[in-house]
Design a binder for these strands. Structure first.
Length: 784
DNA sequence: TTAGTTCGGGTTTTT
DNA sequence: CCCGAACTAA
């Protein structure tokens, strides 16, 4: 068995013990991924059908990489085998199952997946419709409550019947939360939409209410593997338990010290209780670290030792001692960025390292800005993971909105987003009326429109515009079959006028938005052709399934890898880098202010810091700033308590007399002499984000051109609708007349200009000063 | 209906 | 400070 070579004793045992329930406690850097991949390859080599193996990973990227590694281990025909594996995140795997089985729960197979924005927007709508206080029922908070409920398998009815929850809500003055939850669930269902949490929640419902379906998957998945088991929540735990009940060949891998997702309902108890759940389990402990230096491992051990809730284990390494962990102080967040950027620059030169050898990790996304600026100044290419992802950008979501509406016309969030973009005269009033009518009939807006348009008392013009919109979307629907995702996508972008609308905006931001849409379409082209082995290209619904659960990290361009990585510590989980900078080590930031209330919270923050430290292979640097900009103003900061919690023998602390970084002197000396300051901004700028390929743009700032509004330039007399009805009512005015305005009261006409129907009057009102009024709109009465 | 301006709130972490 | 929502004028 050649792929077993190079595994240590514990790893080899964990690979070879193929049957029964297995718990693998895998310390940071202990070769966990290796064990998982070799284990799966080993199963396949033994002749297990890849269709009968289910592997649940934490990110799509992890799944993809594991598949590649497995394929390599297997040799020539490995590719096909690896591709047939069921491997992905909980969300993507069960979304797939719900596509196939959702009809049993009343969902079409093309159901939409609502992202967090969609969920919040729907909640805001409900709160507003019910006339509730939106300060009390903040979308964020309400969504959080609903999310926790779903992750704990509490549906709306259970919520309303739960005395404790209801009392809790009442105590905080939010007694309507349960009702909102119920309404939210109804509205999602009516829109044929599931939110992220529904993907897990509804899978549980599916298995609970349809034993035949449950049995099918129980029998199908002979081997189940779960990575990052310490970060599963109850909904996930229950699915795993159910699915594994038949064969009980369940292997879970995790590390309690790296549990960092309690805030989204993950329970460390799942891994701690595995022993009770499966009394005849086998236990494997991977304690040898292959990743980091003795210094880093020692420092991390000394830190995590401060936590009370943990499984005792001894992580050790045979690697060399390595450099001490540097702690560096800066005067401000910008200076901190400058230090890190210059330090990367120097280290890179000294050791001839690629940019990809460096990572900057922070607690919150907002911290990326000062780092970005500093890196840009030194022309160091970087890549930000997380934050506002490509798919969350407005223009991208707009186009995706059309795609969603085409595939699932009941999707109300998509409808509201695109019905009047680009502007087509269907405004808020019309949409509000539609929503009320739909609510009364308990129908999706789309169905209301199809069945009851003529009963709703709209003007002819409005009706016509609505019919035009519906006709357009329906024409897209007829093209769903037979057209590839890319073909239809491009057609939609053009036909709706979205592409032209963006193209017309020649401001730098406008150009970038246009490029993003092009990038999205390019991505779709690749996607459409990606259906290897068959002639049929993949379609728009296929694309939407993928897109909803993609994250930034899944977007790596393999030809563009040599960049410094910037990300939150949460997104760094599972990754490793030779040189790691952990920035912003300040009280209230890390540990975060929101997470110092209870011991459990603080311990999670400490585990987070543990995760950060153990990402480093060679050298780790900790930085903090004495002051930092927080929404606009400078605030003073104290060094994080976490620095003191590391055994000082592993640290290289700043000397008190001399600040580690003197901005004025060092900045000049460290700027590479062969690059004059003025040229530093030229050449291809590093792309901040992956997707939009920042095509090298001319260095000169593009002259902002005045935005042209074509309607206003249109020849006179063209738009007849408004003028013909209002034209007769425009009073005949002359300069010097006294007029009355419904808001401003009486005033005197100073000046008249333009010709009908666009006469503009300048009127002086004693109460509110001089105003310019278009007679077409302003209702003026002649007084004298 | 819509464009432009003011106002208020947001930064914890993510599928 | 920067964004979207709400408000206001046209």
């Amino acid at each position: 068995m050649q792929h077993l070579e190079g595994l240590n004793e514990a790893q080899r045992e964990a690979v070879l013990h193929t049957t029964g329930p297995n718990l693998v406690i895998a310390g940071a850097g202990s070769g966990k991924t290796r064990v998982l991949t070799v284990r799966i390859a080993h199963l396949l080599a033994q002749g297990v059908d890849p269709f009968r193996i289910l592997a649940l990973t934490f990110t799509n990227k992890a799944a993809r990489e594991m598949k590649e590694r497995i394929a390599k281990l297997l040799g020539p025909q490995g590719n096909t085998e690896a591709r047939s594996l069921w491997m992905g995140t909980f969300h993507s795997v069960f979304a797939r199952i719900l596509r196939a089985e959702g009809s049993k729960l009343g969902y079409p197979s093309d159901f939409t997946i609502y992202d967090t924005d969609d969920s919040r927007s729907l909640l805001r709508t409900i709160v507003k419709e019910w006339g509730l206080d939106d300060k009390l029922y903040k979308a964020n908070l309400v969504h959080g409550r609903i999310s926790i409920a779903k992750n704990n398998l509490i549906g709306p009815e259970e919520y309303l019947n739960n005395v404790e929850l209801m009392a809790n809500d009442a105590a905080s003055g939010r007694e309507k939360l349960g009702e909102i939850y119920r309404q939210y669930a109804e509205r999602c269902f009516r829109s044929a939409a599931m939110d992220f949490d529904d993907l897990l929640f509804n899978t549980n419902i599916l298995f609970r209410d349809h034993p035949d379906v449950m049995l099918k998957y129980q029998q199908r998945f002979q081997y189940i593997l779960v990575d990052e088991y310490q970060d599963t929540n109850l909904a996930q735990y229950n699915i795993v338990r159910t699915m594994a009940a038949r064969h009980e060949n369940l292997t879970v891998v995790g590390d309690d010290s790296q549990s960092i997702y309690a805030f989204r309902g993950a329970s460390i108890q799942n891994i701690l209780n595995f022993r009770n759940d499966y009394p005849d389990h086998a236990l494997f402990k991977l304690e040898q670290n292959y990743r980091s230096t003795k210094t880093i491992v020692g420092a991390a051990n000394s830190l995590i030792d401060k936590n009370r809730d943990q499984i005792k284990k001894t992580i050790w390494t045979q690697n060399q001692e390595g450099d001490a962990i540097r702690v560096r102080r800066s005067m401000s967040d910008n200076e901190e960025g400058a230090f890190v950027a210059h330090d990367i620059f120097e280290t890179r030169m000294q050791h001839q390292l690629p940019n990809s050898a460096f990572a900057i990790l922070y607690r919150t996304n907002a911290q990326s800005r000062s780092m970005e600026e500093a890196l840009r100044k030194l022309n160091i290419p970087y890549r930000i993971y997380g934050g506002l992802s490509f798919y969350q950008r407005k223009e991208v979501k707009d186009l995706l909105g059309y795609f969603r509406l085409t595939c699932n016309p009941r999707d109300e969030e998509a409808f509201k987003r695109v019905v009047n973009y680009p502007a087509r005269g269907i405004g808020k009033t019309t949409v509000d009326k539609l929503m009320v009518a739909a609510g009364e009939r308990k129908l999706p807006i789309w169905d209301t429109l199809l069945q009851h348009l003529h009963e709703l008392g709209f003007h002819e013009g409005t009706k016509r515009r609505l019919v035009d919109f519906v006709t357009m979307v329906r024409s897209f629907q007829t093209m769903l079959e037979g057209q590839s995702a890319h073909q239809l996508g491009e057609y939609i972008a053009r036909t709706t006028g979205l592409l032209q609308d963006l193209y017309a905006d020649r401001t730098p931001e406008g150009i970038s938005r246009y490029e993003n849409i092009q990038e999205l379409l390019n991505g779709m082209k690749e996607f459409s052709e990606g259906n290897e082995g068959t002639d049929t290209p993949r379609t728009l619904p296929d694309f939407l399934i993928d897109v909803a659960l993609l994250t930034d990290a899944d977007n790596d361009d393999p030809n563009d890898q040599d960049r410094v990585s910037l990300m939150t510590i949460h997104s760094a989980k599972g990754l490793e880098f030779p040189h790691v900078y952990i920035v912003g080590l300040e009280e209230d930031l890390f540990p975060n202010l929101m997470a110092v209330q209870t011991r459990a919270d603080l311990e999670e923050e400490r585990r987070l810091f543990y995760v950060a430290l153990t990402r480093a292979e060679q050298r780790c640097t900790l930085t903090y700033a004495v002051s930092r900009y927080r929404w606009g103003n400078l605030t003073a900061c104290e060094p994080s308590r976490f620095i003191d919690e590391i055994d000082p023998q592993f640290l290289d602390l700043p000397t008190r007399q001399q600040p580690a970084w003197d901005l004025k002197s060092d900045r000049a000396s460290l700027t590479p002499p062969w690059k004059s300051r003025s040229k530093a901004f030229e050449g291809p700028q590093p792309t901040a984000r992956p997707a939009p390929k920042a095509a090298p743009r001319p260095a000169a700032p593009p002259t902002p051109q005045p935005r042209r509004n074509l309607k206003k330039i249109a020849p006179t007399g063209a738009p007849a609708e408004a003028t013909s009805t209002l034209g007769g009512e425009v009073p005949q005015l002359e300069e010097g007349m006294t007029v009355e305005h419904e808001r401003f009261g009486k005033g005197k006409v100073v000046k008249l200009e333009g010709r009908a129907p666009d006469i503009k009057a300048t009127v002086f009102f004693p109460s509110s000063g001089q105003k310019q009024l278009l007679l077409r709109f302003a209702k003026l009465k002649v007084v004298g």
